Simulated scan of single mutants.
Amino acid sequence: MGTMKPTRLNTNATDAKCPAHALHDHPKIPQEKIGVLLANLGTPDATDYWSMRKYLSEFLSDKRVIDYPAWKWQPILQGIILSIRPQKSGAAYRTIWNNDANESPLLTITKQQHQAISAKLGSKFGENIVVDYCMRYGNPSTKSKVAAMIAEGCTKILFFPLYPQYAGATVATANDEFFRALMKENWQPASRTVAPYFDNPQYIDALAQSVERAYASAAKKPNILICSYHGLPARYLTKGGDPYHCQCQKTTRLLKERLGWADTEIMTTFQSKFGPEEWLQPYTVEEVARQAEAGNKSIAVCAPAFSADCIETLEEINEEIKESFEEAGGEDFLYIPCLNDDEAHIDVLTQVIEENLKGWT
């Protein structure tokens, strides 16, 4: 090999050296490593109008999220929606913002997950494993983290979108962004993506443990557990064949079986409806009111589609949906937090990673 310099390799790394049998003038390159890149949905940098507008524009311009033709959708988005929604979303974020770290709870929790997983993998595989995290929308971007991993010497990267269930609007778009980042690299690493893990027995057990702990500490036992999943337009399922709805239903069923409950003690609903068209039903905000009106004055709500608490859980569920329940006559509303950096959850994620690293480590 001659004097061609590899793209963006960190030749100043302490472990950088010339490859075996290289010519004397070959640049030093870092020791080969394996990268594990955790990915979550995203976060605004701040709660002000322009930060929220930038974040929402990126999010709502994603064709995986809103699939309307750009000529039809972008004038509406950039005009009416982004003139109004940033203020409303910013106000919602301010109610849950981590003021100490000046960041969203999703970013705080993702950092905690990253640190815990990095420690576990590092203790087993040593310095040859590089663990990092990125966001599909906002910062840190997927592109920047892929470039950083390659510069550090990662010749293999496992990309892990932190969603238990598959949906085009979550897992697929995260993978899309990962592949787009690879397209920018002249020297691409070998790559793998992680499949959904909604039916992983260890994941279901961790979910069940969180429910059992919450019920054990509740002042009054809930009449029913509402498993609230992020919604999608119904046509994504009926016309596009997206498996998300089925995987959500199966998650609830497996949780029910693990808990040993009757069908009447648990149900599946969907939240975060956006726009005028029909989304997956029943809608959580309507169902909690119906439960209250039917006499179930004590309910619990969990969010099995989210690996970390975020605006959709801390603000939408624990404030808006709770308010809907109470206004309909409900009395006791218990929100069960996401698994976040719970030890059992970290064990699940680490196990999934190790399974997907087989043949590389």
Rank of each mutant, 00 (worst) to 15 (best):
I317A: 00
I311P: 09
H345D: 02
H245M: 14
A169R: 02
Y166D: 05
F159A: 05
N223S: 13
A116W: 15
S210N: 14
A344N: 08
I34Y: 15
E287G: 02
W73D: 01
S61I: 03
W50C: 02
D263K: 13
Q291T: 11
C248K: 02
R180D: 12
Y133N: 02
E277W: 13
P105L: 14
N98H: 14
Y335P: 03
T284I: 06
E319Y: 02
S191K: 07
G126P: 10
Q112E: 13
E152L: 03
S228L: 01
L232Y: 03
G330W: 14
G241T: 03
E265G: 04
R192A: 15
N128C: 10
V301W: 05
K322L: 02
K156H: 13
N98C: 11
P140W: 11
Y55Q: 07
H114A: 07
L60M: 08
K33V: 01
T252H: 10
M183W: 05
S89P: 08
L106R: 03
D347I: 05
N10R: 03
R136Q: 13
I29F: 00
E287R: 13
T47I: 07
A116K: 14
E257H: 14
I109Y: 10
P105W: 06
G2N: 09
A206L: 08
S272V: 05
R213A: 13
L280E: 07
P196E: 10
T193K: 15
T47S: 12
M267T: 14
D242N: 04
F59N: 09
P161L: 09
M135L: 01
I34W: 00
C302W: 03
M183T: 13
N318Y: 03
W279G: 12
A16H: 06
E343K: 11
I266F: 06
Y68G: 01
I299M: 01
T264R: 11
Q351W: 11
L357N: 07
T173Y: 11
P233Y: 03
C338P: 13
A22L: 12
A167Y: 02
F178T: 00
M183R: 14
P30K: 13
A92E: 10
A46F: 11
N356K: 14
N99I: 12
D332Y: 05
A39Q: 07
I80C: 09
Q188P: 05
R258S: 06
Y163Q: 01
A119M: 15
P86N: 04
E327Q: 12
T14N: 12
K124M: 15
T173D: 00
Q74S: 14
D309W: 07
G330Y: 03
K256M: 09
A22H: 03
A344W: 06
Y166S: 01
L162A: 12
L38K: 07
E177H: 13
C227S: 11
I96S: 02
K33A: 07
N10E: 04
A303I: 02
I66N: 00
R136F: 06
D15T: 00
K124T: 10
T313F: 02
I109T: 13
P44H: 14
G126E: 15
C134G: 10
I321W: 04
G260L: 09
R235I: 06
M52D: 00
A39I: 09
P222K: 07
